[in-house]
Design a protein around this nucleic acid. Sequence first.
DNA 1: TTGTAAGCGTTATCAA
DNA 2: TTGATAACGCTTACAA
Lengths: 341, 341
Amino acid sequence: MVMGKKRAFNKVTLKDIAVKTGVTINTVSRALKDKEDIAQGTREKIKAAAQELGYISNSMAGSLRSGLTKTIAVILGDISNPHFGIMAKEIERSARKHDYTTFVINTEEDDLLEEKAIISAVSKNVDGIILCPAQHSKKNIELLKKTGVPFVLLGRRFEDDDSDYVICDDLNGGYLATKHLIESGHKHILCITGPQQISSSRERLQGYKQALLEGNIDFNPDLVRAVGTQTENNPRIVMKDILNENIKFTGIFAFSDMVAWEVIYILQKNGYLVPKDFAIVGFDNIQSRIFVPFPLTTISNSKSKMSRRAYDVLMRRINEDEVSDRVNEIIDTILIVRSSS
Amino acid sequence: MVMGKKRAFNKVTLKDIAVKTGVTINTVSRALKDKEDIAQGTREKIKAAAQELGYISNSMAGSLRSGLTKTIAVILGDISNPHFGIMAKEIERSARKHDYTTFVINTEEDDLLEEKAIISAVSKNVDGIILCPAQHSKKNIELLKKTGVPFVLLGRRFEDDDSDYVICDDLNGGYLATKHLIESGHKHILCITGPQQISSSRERLQGYKQALLEGNIDFNPDLVRAVGTQTENNPRIVMKDILNENIKFTGIFAFSDMVAWEVIYILQKNGYLVPKDFAIVGFDNIQSRIFVPFPLTTISNSKSKMSRRAYDVLMRRINEDEVSDRVNEIIDTILIVRSSS
DNA sequence: TTGTAAGCGTTATCAA
DNA sequence: TTGATAACGCTTACAA
């Protein structure tokens, strides 16, 4: 049964069904696709044969001819991070409902891997791409535009760029989180932000500044620290540093719930209590999905809504006959107060 | 530029490069693939043209001819669950290193969706499949076998079946967790298990029973509760029920860390403290990835190792010339004691 | 070193 | 209602 380099088995093709039923490949194809102009009897005979042989269509071959693959690519930082996992799940679910299949490619927030991901997706002839860009530069977006494959940015956006995007209201989120801490009586608020090339990091930080301004609190650059996925800028190191520096702060606004948890973890290890010693606000409301026994005040950003909207926008792009105006959506963020603040 | 139903853009093909450089399609193909028998000058000219035109190969068309797609499918319950997300990430990363692309399809632990997922993957001509089966029946496995597409089961296995699988030592994990609770002085131990059709649920429960036996503790069926993803059997409901029943227990062995967290969350809501009122042990050691500020005693099962092994086994199957013996791997589990017990 | 021809499995077009 | 033929973009085998 083994046939060397290629597949070690014989896939059933339209030809096999054609031979078995005594009609042409063409007729088989039309019958299985439920086209109108096929005799009832022929159709039944063909479908029965297909069933019996265990026929599964080779959709790739079909795509080559039809030009559509019913496949989209989701390109994001790291699927094991619930932040992305939740979005990937919602996109896959929406896609599956419309018989679309989903490639997931991780960029690990790396510029080169992102480029490879885009090329890989385009090479596989996906009908469209949903991208959470790593934003090290605009180069990959330019590449994507050049390919002509429809795409939507999710969660992050570029300034001076006309791509479609769906994001949440990061600015307002940062503002709400900080304002909440201020209203709770905190005057020295540490902002643990994310990588600064990422728009959501920058915009949440901007919201933080805005709330300080409004609360008549001087902005102190020492109280802004960026964390990332590198060894030298992970939350543990960053927190250790700031605790050693003896900088005064009592409130913390963290870039994400994941970061907030890790920060709390480190604070606890150092003998501090939350919210007694430090009040902390996260971002993402992951606890709506993962019931962690540590009630964290956070900003909810409706990842599922964002994801579904991104999918809808992409589908519209894929199916539209004429290029329409760009779509930019900003999903509301709201404050959810729990007991960490 | 718009062309109606099909793609609203023109992909650059080998033909375009051929026309531009004045050679045949074939020569272009060979040059870009760095075959030996191409003149240095020709190769450079062709590569320059490809670069200039922004050529990205249509790997689907190639696959149709070559029979290999360099694509695998990962079929699992729910990518947004870190349990699966971590495995998906590791698989995708391994695959990407070998220029393989990964489809992710969620089954939502549903039998029919699983069947659709398999058909979808086979239809896309994937070279292989890694499947975390929902195990409602063996039907889908039989289907998969019939297609002839190489596959490996991950995390779960069937009895009386000769499929390749990579799992962790669930039996020993359940045993270690329970033994730890017994050694900590607990005699009434609640076992929150998972859906019973899933092998890992059954095997962990078996380990629980074994530890009880060894500890001379009578097995009490009232202390075994199965949770799932349905409304009626989610951890909240299940815990509420058992607390209302006034059944005595002081230790808890939970099916997963996610379940353990939710159980702790519910216990806290009901005014109980962990580990003061209840000691609890989870499963998965997700805290090696997600730094939740609640140190949970757990069983570590090396998801990344499992995933990488599953990928390796699959690749061996895909590339082997002759069918070799089935591969069954059981990755060690170990107890990690933190402060929830 | 390069070109020609055939073929992968399907769909589209047109003729019968 | 069905069949014959071409085509999708690429790779393979073989000829020049």
